[in-house]
Amino acid sequence: MTIVETQNLVKRYGDLVALDHLSLEVKEGEIFGLLGPNGSGKSTSLNCILSLLSFDKGEVKIFGKTMKPDAYSIKRNIGIVMQNVAVFDELTVYENIDYFCSLYVPDKKQRKQLVDEAIDFVELGEFRKFYPKKLSGGLLRRLNIACGIAHQPKLIILDEPTVAVDPQSRNKILEGIKQLHKQGATIIYTSHYMEEVEQICTQIVIIDKGRVIASGTKEELKAMISMGEKITVETFSISSDQMTALRRLPGVITAEYADERLVIKSEKETNNLAAVLDFFKNESITFGRIYSELPTLNDVFLEITGKQLRD
């Protein structure tokens, strides 16, 4: 069952086309990752999906119904977690979650149970009487998530929920999202951190300049590109002759040296790690770490657009 569907969504800001015939389809039970660099149109597309922003052309359907600003029956089943922390400084952790939950659940008894569950879910039990100003950045992000999911919506939209969060809190947030998915929620997750998207998303769409440039599972996306292996060697110096020799190794697409780091990209089904090690040994080049990686979504993005995801 399709939960969210956008068809040919166009949004213009004067001459700037923020969304250029964007079509997305989010199926039930997916963790749908919307990946793109800053300014690619991720937040704009979410705002259009949520009817927070009017669009020039196209259609948005959620749960099979057309989404409009007054589609309150649809809104009832959506939970949103904004990019910035959107909580009240005047209310405690418990009061904040209770307030946002009360926008969806009028029954006090039922709400109390839901709020308690949300607090347990984000592990803020010991901070329930704390005011947001007393919380660290990571805890605030968790509170922000709790406020968005306390009413247990069928569709959860998370707009870069891990921005400026420490690694420990980030892992907790990502684990939480996986748990929500296990509980049956469909999740739309936007980020410009490819590692996160790779880690949790079951379906990924990469967008740039308001257009979909690639979509599929992470495996499908990686299969789209010619690169199969990336070898990185930390070394102090390497001559241009040695670089030329490395580029002649079988299946090597590119070999680049910058910032005391040599990166060799090879074609699919090519394994050059042993050959590179032999080369360094024969040439008596000293090196620090050497490691081989499979292509990342950044490599996918780089190969398709010619630029880095974090540019």
């Binding site: 029956s73 949103i80 904004m82 990019q83 922390v85 946002f100 969806y104 968005g148």
Partner: peptide, 19 residues
């Protein structure tokens, strides 16, 4: 000032409470 904070306002708009 509190209710007009952009993200809080958006959360309220996204809720099922009639404007």
């Amino acid at each position: 000032i509190v209710l007009n904070r952009q993200d809080i306002n958006r959360r309220i708009i996204c809720s099922p409470i009639h404007s």
